[in-house]
Nucleic acid binder design. Structure first.
Length: 155
DNA sequence: GCCAACGTTGGC
DNA sequence: GCCAACGTTGGC
């Protein structure tokens, strides 16, 4: 089966594409939204493509590529009282929050949010829809082909 | 800092 | 189950 593609938002002051490039792979900690968690739990497959999106920063946009590098497993920060992601309602026997590891593939020239919005052929991206706040959104195969052109990478 | 959008909480 | 209040996200 051909890999699916996901857009995953990260605040670069927490984890940037440069952090991922340096570390090679990172656990995608901190997802605390059921819909985003369910994507990782139910739909992610090893090797799926990840579009690494910088959010809540001076220049939001797609900053690089990765791939899904693990099966889903419990996010350890939910059990850590010193973590801002601590969830007192979660127990190790029945963890509420899962994550996957994401591996580095490549940095791309920043495809900024402004550039995404100004590309008519990308207007259907979920991340551009009014009111969207979801930190993980699916990218269709056709959307990926159009994005690859803009990113200057092979589809 | 502002604020639109949307999710969650909790009283009823 | 309804819904008002409140909290969070995230661009600007």
């Amino acid at each position: 089966m051909t890999p699916q593609t996901w857009l995953m938002k990260s605040e670069p002051n927490e984890a940037s594409i440069d952090d991922l490039a340096r570390e090679g792979r990172l656990p995608w900690t901190g997802v605390r939204n059921h819909q985003a968690r369910n994507f990782m739990r139910d739909a992610f497959r090893l090797g799926d493509r990840v579009l690494f999106y910088h959010s809540s920063c001076a220049e939001p946009g797609i900053a690089g590529l990765g791939h899904v590098a693990s099966a889903p497993y419990p996010d350890p920060t939910q059990f850590d009282p010193s973590s801002s992601y601590f969830d007192p309602k979660s127990a190790p026997a029945s963890p509420r929050w899962l994550l996957v590891d994401v591996a580095f593939v490549a940095k791309t020239p920043l495809l900024s949010l402004a550039a995404l919005r100004s590309a008519p052929e990308l207007a259907d991206l979920a991340v551009l829809q009014r009111g969207n706040r979801l930190s993980i959104t699916p990218i269709t195969p056709d959307q990926w082909r159009r994005l690859a052109v803009r990113l200057g990478v092979p589809a």
